[in-house]
Design a protein around this nucleic acid. Structure first.
Lengths: 197, 197, 197, 197
DNA sequence: GTATAAACGAGACGGTACGTCATGTCTTCGG
DNA sequence: CCGAAGACATGACGTACCGTCTCGTTTATAC
């Protein structure tokens, strides 16, 4: 967890670190969050339990880091900018909706959510390391639209972002409705109406 | 969980049921979700473990029912209707924001959330028994506003509701921002702009 | 360990108790004392670890009880009494020497010794439950010899017993010499010389 | 353990060797045999674990050597010889009994015993390096008594020694009786009766 | 006097076992 | 026959040590 405790990080085994993170993701996909134990991760990674406890303070931290490692490759987080804000946002939101519907992502994201709900420190890490960069990219596209006069100059971009994404995330979390492309479009349209110049 | 299994529900001890539900709420408030065990609930309620397992299929179900019991008293779920939709919504959203900020509600609601994320059946129950009635009351107020010409006639009330509440809920869940009255007001104003006639 | 702790002994599973004691003896014979773990005993006995920890305070206590159970059957501890004390003692000491030399007894008795050396309470139990009855039988034979005028009337029978058996036991414990029939005979002869009337 | 393995003994650090042996004795006195770990010895001695594993094959060997180092100083192992065998033996046996009763010696000697019971090779070392020289000194005194006609000419001195000391050692090991001066005297008297000319 | 090879301290590693805790099932007994 | 009490098999927890294996860092001949 990028943690600052006593063991000497210079001597840390990169091999073990990767094996643990990989095993964690694999197990969460296969058996789900609740049934993924530290013991099973260690066994699957071919690693002693102590090697996990030495470097991570909790199961949540391991899970979190296994996500971080995953998303590290996905660096180019810039959104499309065709000049048409509405079209671009619809593209992106439809993609997000599709991603949420993908059963492949189901288990891991719920696992992450479970940990974040109950651990404020993890939540902070999540915002800083995972959500933050993505949100910045989104806000950059909004700002560009703002400059192009497609969004009110005084719009609070954080608020815009929340109104775009939170309903989607909530539907997914509570399974309270379908995540269709039409729904994504409706969200974009309503939000842009709310913040048009 | 008002479940349909074999034991004879007529002979069920109401005394034990209440004791279990009360003990559950107390423990979640006191030691948090993660440390609340069936064993502890049974001990605290002065009840055999089997009496819990006989009537509830999982820890989540017990927690859920302990909420249900709580909210049963809070029947009068009608929203204020002064004729001014914006003012009324601001009142309600400010109240919701304040409730979320109340540390008293913190632990139990997060406990409930944790269970719901990972258990689709529980999520369905949640929508039906807890969220549903409240949402209906909210939609009733929106419909009244619609009739009064304060909201577009073709507005999708489910979507309106989500845009009003989801950003608030998300901020709380991920602790990604403060839940101030101003924030509540801004949400109401933006949403009404999006759906004005 | 015939222990006096909180669990309700009336509800104890006799089946588990026997399985644990049997598994303990089997493991000590097979892999030796040092490698016999509580975990292995539980696995072999088809029993939860907690069932061991519930009823015994330490590995030593389990081992001890596994011996006790063994020796319980061996009730008839009376020594031969042909009227010739020296001949009878030689018979008995030769048998003891042979028993010590039997590799079958090797591992378990050393295991017991290891525990007794370091645990005074176990040592007390050993004297009371295992050594005591046997010593009484031996002293009975000595007393009979005393009455027959084959032993000094004022001989301290405890001391006689120790001089007969302690050298044998010490040779075995420290492997400081062979345990031959001749050695047994020599011990008997010397001891009887020391305490002749 | 004066062992014959590959590392170059010429370059061995005497400083570390002493520190390890000292730490071992200190720990055994302080926390007892069972709780004395290699890890703790290394930490206490300010030494790497490998430095212990390099020079000793087992915990028992370290413990044994820590005794050896202790007894090395006590070179003058000759027994008193006043010409009166009985008096001299009583003096010596009383001293041995007193030493056994000394709580200071309790923990270390029992630790040594624990190792020796289960390790034949250590037992051999014990006889050769520790018990042997002392026994030789005792036999020398017995031989001198034999020559003075105070002991049968054909007495087996090993047997005499065992009859003198084994009962004492056994009482101590199993805590089966008090180690009084009177007991020491009775042992000497009985043994000398058994082997008088 | 420096080079070089060892022993060294430190401690991370894959493991085993520890003793504790919670789970969900099963059994006993009292009302 | 329901419910309390709680023993049971199971299995994960987090900790302590095991014995092995690098890491730099002394140190102490051999050049």
């Amino acid at each position: 967890m990028t943690s600052d405790r006593q063991p000497n990080r210079a001597r840390r085994s990169e091999r073990s670190r990767r094996a643990i993170l990989d095993a964690t993701r694999a197990l969460i996909s296969e058996v789900g969050y609740a049934k993924t134990s530290i013991e099973a991760i260690a066994a699957r990674a071919g690693v002693g339990k102590q090697t996990i406890y030495r470097w991570w303070p909790s199961k949540g931290a391991v899970i979190f880091d296994s996500f971080l490692a995953l998303s590290e490759g996905a660096g180019g987080t810039a959104l499309p900018d065709t000049g048409d804000l509405e079209a671009d946002l619809k593209t992106v939101l439809r993609a997000t909706a599709a991603e949420f519907a993908d059963p492949e992502f189901e288990a891991p994201i719920r696992a992450l959510g479970t940990e974040i709900i109950n651990d404020p420190e993890l939540a902070a890490q999540y915002r800083e390391k995972l959500a933050g960069p993505v949100d910045e990219a989104k806000k950059a596209r909004l700002r560009s639209g703002q400059e192009a006069g497609q969004l009110a100059a005084d719009a609070d971009l954080d608020l815009v972002l929340e109104m775009l994404y939170a309903p989607l995330a909530q539907r997914w979390l509570y399974r309270s409705g379908p995540l269709t492309p039409e729904y994504a479009d409706a969200l974009v349209e309503a939000t842009l109406r709310a913040f048009r110049p």
